[in-house]
């Protein structure tokens, strides 16, 4: 049976939504889905090398005043960081992370080397639309 495909548009670069994306990727990995992640505007900043692993540089999409409590709960529950979720999913199934070229430029990232190793390539919007058209599951976060 051919593997199901997921297209995940990651617009957000916030800690809470990145964590949600990581959990969803884990579920997709458990099901051997093939996933294309398209990192759009705000998301691209989170994938910058100097930002990704530093929660201090990332905000919350909701309940910003509870960031400290949120982070502490993740720690107590032994929840992986969003970067760890992405790494694990990539190790378990076919996950490709595409950085939107425009988004990269907005945050000063011209080349793929400007982003963490999770990122596979820099792409245009056409690649996202094609992936969304072909996917069994399409999510926008």
């Amino acid at each position: 049976m051919e593997n199901k495909k997921m297209c995940l548009a990651l617009f957000s670069g916030s800690l809470d939504k990145l964590t949600a994306a990581g959990v969803i990727l884990s579920g997709a990995a458990a099901d051997d889905m093939e996933v294309d992640v398209f990192v759009l505007l705000q998301g691209a900043r989170a994938f910058k090398r100097e930002v990704a692993d530093d929660p201090e540089k990332l905000s919350m999409a909701e309940n910003a005043h509870l960031k400290k409590e949120f982070m502490e709960s993740l720690r107590v529950l032994k929840v992986k960081t969003w970067v760890e979720f992405f790494k694990e999913a990539k190790a378990l199934t076919k996950v490709k992370v595409h950085i939107c070229g425009l988004a990269g430029k907005i945050w000063g990232g011209e080349k793929i080397e400007d982003f963490v190793d999770l990122a596979d390539d820099i792409c245009g919007i056409g690649a996202y639309i094609t992936s969304a058209q072909e996917a069994d599951v399409h999510l926008f976060i």
Binding site: V23, S26, A29, K78, L92
Partner: peptide, 14 residues
Amino acid sequence: RGTACPGPLLEAKK
């Protein structure tokens, strides 16, 4: 037992 969702599912998968 030491992990929250999605830990157990991923442990099973591995």
